[in-house]
């Protein structure tokens, strides 16, 4: 218990003192997970829209598969990407193992199914009454797609935020791919794991609080952008 209180105090001290090491790993966490969310959204949002707006054989199976992949274990993604990027693996020549770029690739792969599946759900959620209204108003197909997308934008933003949340909170892939190298690939979650294994419990709690604070800021900023 004492460690949790101590953790809060330490978190405030770290934030106020602008501890350079903590700032560095916080910035790296943001850089890695925001990049991964960006790349994943580039793929997942159009893909989700495509799946929703088109009828094709096996559509139900594709959606089931996507929803199953929500449960993709981070360590398995990390291990698969590790075997690809290792010097003895097929993409070893890229030299991306133990780099922030490798971590971005792994997190991107991790959250693509989540954002894609939730985009499909977001579009389905507003569909029924909307489509009738739109059709009764005599809109063209393109117009109705645009209207539906616009109506679903809050739910789509929620999908992106959930993807970001999964990325910045996970420790499995970044530990395997990044290697938790100080000053190079250490991020908040791997620093928390390390400090827990070193017995610095209150420092771990402090880093956890900072991680939540960062997530809060990202959520608020994205919501503000959305509302404009």
């Amino acid at each position: 218990m004492n460690e949790i209180v101590q953790g809060f105090i330490e978190a405030i001290e770290l934030i106020l003192s602008l501890d350079p090491d903590v700032i560095e790993i916080t910035v790296r966490s943001l850089y890695v997970s925001l990049s991964a969310t960006f790349f994943a959204s580039l793929v997942a949002l159009p893909l989700g829209a495509y799946i929703y707006f088109n009828e094709f054989r096996g559509k139900r199976a594709v959606i089931n598969l996507l929803q199953t992949l929500y449960a993709l274990p981070t360590v398995i993604v990390g291990l698969a990407v590790f075997l690809m990027l290792s010097r003895s693996g097929p993409f070893g020549f890229l030299g991306m193992l133990f780099t922030p770029q490798g971590m971005i690739v792994a997190q991107t792969i991790l959250i693509i199914p989540l954002i894609t599946g939730l985009t499909v759900s977001a579009l389905s959620g507003i569909d029924r009454e909307m489509r009738y209204t739109i059709i009764s108003l005599g809109s063209s197909q393109l117009q109705s797609i645009i209207t539906i997308l616009r109506e679903a934008r809050f739910a789509i933003l929620a999908a992106v935020l959930l993807g970001f949340g999964r990325a910045i909170a996970e420790v499995g892939t970044v530990m395997l791919i990044g290697g938790n190298i100080r000053g190079f690939t250490r991020v908040l979650t791997t620093a928390i794991a390390l400090n827990t294994s070193m017995g610095n419990f209150s420092f771990s709690i402090a880093l956890g609080i900072i991680l939540l604070g960062v997530a809060l800021v990202v959520n608020v900023v994205l919501n503000l952008v959305q509302e404009r």
């Binding site: 560095e24 780099t99 922030p100 770029q101």
Partner: peptide, 14 residues
């Protein structure tokens, strides 16, 4: 992302 792989360590790593 690969070209970034070489470029970005210069900015992020101290």
């Amino acid at each position: 992302e690969t070209p970034d792989g070489q470029a970005i360590p210069n900015e992020t790593a101290t």
